[in-house]
Design a protein around this nucleic acid. Structure first.
Length: 447
RNA sequence: GCCGGUAUCGUCUAGGGGUCAGGACACGUGGUUCUCAGCCACGGGACCGGGGUUCGAAUCCCCGUACCGGUACCA
């Protein structure tokens, strides 16, 4: 029994899209599960649409997801080259061989495969046995009149050369498969095992395309999704582990993966569920990991300072703890962390109207500021006690003062719990923010 | 048109001749509460249709329908 060899063979269209990513992932999962080899082969025969840039876009996407390859671009391997455009001689030789043996023939300069009568069958790991009547298979071109091989010829030749044992690819290739099986037979090679995985559809059940927004995996990276969350989500889209668990690491997925578990129907890409997966993986990150994932984005926002990794680390971890239940993406963290790094530049208009324009609020806020300033100990309990006592004394609801203070602290109507936040903002930070709000909001009015 | 594939809550799925058809996301209600999120509890929600086979069908078979894919000197 030979060890399985699988390949992912994208044509470089510029980026790795979700469907391709999942196909790659299933191949990788199977190879890793079986202790086999995962090959990456670039099908760049369409020279006009291919470039080095596009190839690296795909490599970046795979690397981001944590999908590594044992043979292929940059790492080489015993069956190099791994670019289809560099294997043209092999394809042409195969075509000549078939013509020589009468299994293909020239037709106006192109070479067509002579499809024999009969039926062609193969067993698909996902769909079971599939049978085609050869009379529905056209005598297809394998070598164009410009001597460029067509897809059918080149995949088969390359897969034979690279000793590929399992072809796991999109459902859209099912009807190509009998042609390729015929080619394997004509070339005297045993066809590999096939597994055709269902396609990923948009919410409208139409094939995923730019119309559906982000379709490049790197676009999700930009939006602050974790690669392990995307990996987990994609793996479970069209594949069931058979258990009720949903959150898995890559290793756990490898341990459970089987081609038989792949479902036959198309799957709709659901962003809400991706968000949930992302949140779950975010919660599982330890502090060091979370901080390092956040670092670049914080720097880009101008919030990063090295002390966050040193003297301020404990403080920062407490800030992150407040945000964890609320932030579903890395970008959401950055967005929500801003009040801890900078004073509000503006106050939510609706919030001002709703919470600050009530009668006497200006005086209440001033008293609150004074009460906070007078505190001996600055912690959650003392802050809350001071605010509630003041609310009682002035005959207002604590909630009203809390909302006002929240606006002062963050400029927003929504935030983590007020008192835990005020503790982390520190006395100076809080008093300054209250002063600033009073100046800004009530400057025009008589003070 | 022809060929092929698929069909379980809105979505991802589990199951598969006898189950209260299970879970997750989303959704609704209540609780916790200073907002939001989270958390907890509860709830609504599905076997595409029609024929068979069978004591019994969502499950097996056939037909239909819908959807997806292919039908290129694209990949």
């Amino acid at each position: 029994m030979t060890t399985p060899r699988l390949r992912f063979a994208p044509s470089p269209t510029g980026y790795l899209h979700l469907g391709g990513a999942r196909t790659a992932l299933f191949n990788w999962l199977y190879a890793r599960r079986q202790g086999g080899t995962f090959i990456l082969r670039i099908e760049d025969t369409d020279a006009g649409r291919s470039s080095d840039e596009m190839v690296s876009g795909i490599l970046d996407g795979l690397r981001w997801l944590g999908i590594d390859w044992d043979e292929g671009p940059e790492v080489g391997g015993p069956h190099a080259p791994y670019f289809q455009s560099q294997r043209l001689d092999r394809h042409r030789a195969a075509a000549r061989d078939l013509v020589g043996r009468g299994l293909a023939y020239e037709d106006e300069g192109a070479i067509r495969f002579r499809v024999p009568a009969g039926r062609t069958t193969f067993v698909d790991s996902v769909h079971g046995p599939i049978e085609f009547d050869n009379e529905h298979i056209e005598s297809f071109v394998i070598l164009r009149s410009d001597t460029q091989p067509t897809y059918h010829l080149s995949v088969v030749v390359d897969d034979i050369d690279m000793r590929v044992t399992h072809v796991v690819r999109g459902d859209d290739h099912i009807s190509n498969t009998p042609k390729q099986v015929l080619l394997y037979q004509a070339l005297g090679a045993a066809p590999p095992a096939f597994a055709h995985v269902p396609l990923i559809m948009g919410p409208d059940k139409k094939r995923l395309s730019k119309r559906h927004g982000a379709t490049s995996v790197m676009e999700y990276e930009k939006q602050g999704y974790l690669p392990e969350a995307m990996f987990n989500f994609l793996a479970l889209l069209g594949w069931g582990t058979g258990s009720d668990d949903e959150i898995f690491t890559r290793d756990e997925l490898i341990a459970r993966f089987t081609l038989l578990g792949i479902s036959g129907g198309n799957a709709v890409f659901n962003t809400e569920k991706l968000d949930w997966f992302n949140h779950q993986h975010l919660l599982r990150l330890d502090n060091d990991a979370l901080i390092s994932r956040l670092r670049g984005r914080l720097a880009a926002a101008g919030y990063w300072r090295d002390a966050l990794d040193g003297a301020d680390r404990d403080w920062f971890i407490r800030v992150l703890a407040l945000l964890k239940p609320r932030a579903k993406t890395l970008n959401a963290f950055v967005e929500q962390v801003s009040p801890f790094f900078t004073e509000p530049l503006a106050y939510d208009g609706g919030g001002v109207k709703k919470h600050l324009s009530t009668a006497g609020m200006q005086a209440h806020v001033r008293s609150l500021r004074d009460a906070f300033a007078a505190l001996d100990v600055w912690n959650e309990a003392t802050l809350e006690q001071a605010l509630r006592a003041l609310a009682d004394a002035r005959g207002v609801k604590a909630g009203a003062l809390i909302q006002a203070a929240r606006l002062a602290a963050t400029g927003r109507m929504v935030s983590p719990g007020l008192f835990e936040m005020l503790v982390l903002l520190g006395r100076d930070g809080v008093l300054g923010r209250l002063d600033r709000m009073m100046e800004t909001v009530w400057s025009a009015a008589t003070s």
